[in-house]
């Protein structure tokens, strides 16, 4: 399954979403590849400079020209191929979306994030129309993912409630699970380890809650991937 994580707005949580899902699935035995198409190479940096023993494969040398070739070469070897995209509106983004089974659009509860997310959603819909011209059964699904949300039980901001209501009214599909603002997710990048590998490290905060969050999100993702309407 090719999962593209895209929002032209930077800082929306694309790399965090990618790393959390990819490492969690790999930890449970899935074969996972991450194509790090962000020029800052956060996932490659995590893999190369850290000491994590996670089995995820990271590929970073991609551009608009070689993207399809890289994808074709690697995708048959993995159950999950994540593409972590740059926070810009580039041709690489649109090409990646056209090849996706699922596009995850991470969104924070802010007007800028939502406007940029709309841009990503519109292009997903247009790319899907275009691919259906030569394959009528093909679909590019997408799901909005609320990121940096308050931990369960904490007060939810008005802007987040409004965003959720707007998404529901517009019929925009979204993950039921959101990715909460957690110290553990930040620690994954800072210490270049997986959630499991952070066990016993106080800097990770409430690790059990973060693990539960990652597991719920990954379960929703995998359930979606096994529904089988995509080709």
């Amino acid at each position: 399954m090719i999962i593209v994580v895209s929002n032209p707005k930077g800082g929306s949580g694309k790399s965090t979403t990618t790393l959390v899902l990819a490492t969690h699935l790999a930890h449970l035995g899935a074969t996972v590849c991450v194509i790090d198409a962000d020029p800052n190479r956060p996932i490659q940096d995590w893999k190369l400079k850290g000491k994590s023993t996670s089995s995820i494969t990271v590929i970073a040398d991609v551009n608009e020209t070689n993207f399809f070739d890289v994808l074709d070469a690697h995708s048959p070897h993995f159950q999950f191929v994540f593409v972590d995209l740059e926070g810009t509106a580039s041709f690489l983004v649109s090409r990646a979306i056209s090849s996706a089974n699922l596009v995850i659009v991470p969104v924070q509860a802010s007007a800028i994030d939502v406007r940029q997310a709309s841009k990503a959603i519109r292009i997903v819909q247009d790319e899907e129309k275009a691919v259906r011209r030569f394959d009528s059964t093909r679909s590019i699904r997408f799901r909005v993912l609320m990121t940096r949300t308050p931990a369960p039980g904490a007060p939810v901001s008005l802007s987040q409630k409004e965003l959720e209501r707007d998404l529901d009214q517009a019929g925009i599909p979204r993950f039921k699970t959101s990715l909460a603002e957690r110290q553990a997710f930040k620690a994954m990048f800072n210490l270049r380890l997986t959630l499991k590998e952070l066990e016993g490290d106080r800097r990770a905060g409430n690790l059990a809650a973060a693990y539960e969050n990652a597991d719920a999100l990954a379960t929703e993702l995998v359930t979606l991937s096994t529904e089988g309407t995509n080709r």
């Binding site: 074709d72 995708s75 048959p76 993995f78 999950f80 191929v81 090849s99 030569f134």
Partner: peptide
């Protein structure tokens, strides 16, 4: 979950 299959671009 099967391995990813390349799709026509």
């Amino acid at each position: 979950v099967p391995a990813s299959a390349p799709r026509p671009h």
